[in-house]
Design a protein around this nucleic acid. Structure first.
Lengths: 237, 237
DNA sequence: GAGTGGTCTAGACCACAAC
DNA sequence: TTGTGGTCTAGACCACTCC
């Protein structure tokens, strides 16, 4: 439907499949304009996406350099936790739902989820098993006014798939914060800590398309099974 | 010089200073077009920057919602290590240069820095002291063909300032990887580990404007003094 | 229906790199 | 000088929200 998105996908495929042989450069914007029969601004939108996602780097006066980083390294761009990495690498994973309940928001949650005192929120506690070891503990809190119903089945599969496809919620962006702390008793109970004396904590707040805050999550990882990859461009001044 | 950048900065200032009172919305693109006397696409470029940096969220059919997240939270967007945070919070910091030397690239470095076997590279080892405690160990490697001269003075101040202002190098983007590992003997020697049995490692490769790789860095943080903040938008399909 | 942001166009001029 | 990407314009149509 959107031309620039279609062109973006086409160009991603072509860079991945060495469509231009061993060329280090993309065709120029002008030739792409002719090739796809669109305006130059539309080509530029597609190329901006390629650059944002680390496939190319545009160099003024020269052209768009194809970065081969992404051909070898799996994390295409942005954020990858071990959980995602594990599914990418096709390691056997299992999700155990330890708790699924409605609770009254306490003070900390009121602040994190921006709800009124006494409002009910969903609390979901899940353990993630990778290759037979419990290495991740996920604690999710959802605003009940946005997620009225939540089933154990949905939690065992993918909550996000349920939210996006069944409830038609559109996730827009998230703020994540990574710290390293000492494990709590709950961590020791629910995870196979295996002697590790630290735990990596990823706290995130997730916002919807219409800017409402709807989820607060703490993802607690055993340190040896944690990896985070980030692809950062220099910020504009 | 660039109109969209000037407008971006102006709008950032205005959102920070509550220029529109307690309004939750930015003026519409059309009214901004009139106000700044530019084309709508130029306004849209400025607004895209605001959205990318987490100042606003655009909602179709409604307008641009001002996000107040950034008013309270210091990390404006992207990546913040504790080192940056400490300088933001004006904590007393000190840099100790433990080593500054030219070495022959070993196999690991050849791969990381993409240099020929036997090529010489700069090795810089520095300890960062925050509030009197040595909590960060930075190990930097620079491609000597790009950085011919490096002084102890430059390492004690800011290497990046030296590279950007004196050598006129333009940093373009970096790939970072965060993991947690056990401290090495070197870590124990050079840092005040204070009983901590883990260390947070940020490995990054840094690229220049013309896509050449020029730096490989390992930043090793004491876990209790580590924090990483990320602001991620949903990726386009 | 009026106003909003999202997409797209055809053209222009510029700064920069390469020859 | 030629070709490249970077900026900017004035206009068009669309999908969506709100009243």
């Amino acid at each position: 439907m959107k031309k620039y998105l279609a062109i973006y996908h086409d160009l991603v495929d072509k860079t991945k499949n060495n469509y231009w042989g061993e060329a280090e450069m993309l065709p120029s914007e002008n030739s792409l304009t002719l090739e796809y029969d669109v305006s130059r601004e539309t080509i530029r939108k597609a190329l901006d996406l390629l650059a944002q996602n680390g496939y190319i780097q545009k160099v003024r006066g020269k052209g768009s350099v194809i970065l081969n980083v992404n051909k070898f390294d799996f994390p295409v761009s942005g954020i990858v936790s071990f959980k995602e990495l594990a599914t990418n690498l096709k390691m056997p994973t299992r999700t155990i739902v330890n708790e699924l309940s409605l609770i009254e928001a306490d003070e900390k949650l009121q602040y994190k989820l921006d709800v009124e005192p006494g409002e009910t929120v969903w609390k979901v506690v899940r353990t993630r098993e990778i290759s037979g070891e419990k290495v991740i503990l996920d604690k999710d809190y959802f605003n009940k006014s946005i997620v009225p119903v939540l089933t154990k089945k949905a939690c065992e599969d993918s909550i996000y798939e349920y939210l996006e496809n069944k409830l038609n919620l559109k996730i827009s962006y998230a703020r994540k914060e990574i710290t390293v702390e000492e494990p709590t008793n709950e961590d020791r109970e629910l995870l196979d800590l295996d002697g590790h004396s630290n735990i990596v904590i990823i706290k995130s707040v997730v916002y919807l398309d219409d800017t409402t805050l709807f989820q607060y999550t703490e993802s607690r990882h055993r340190p040896d099974k944690f990896q985070f990859v980030d692809f950062a461009r220099r910020t504009q001044n």
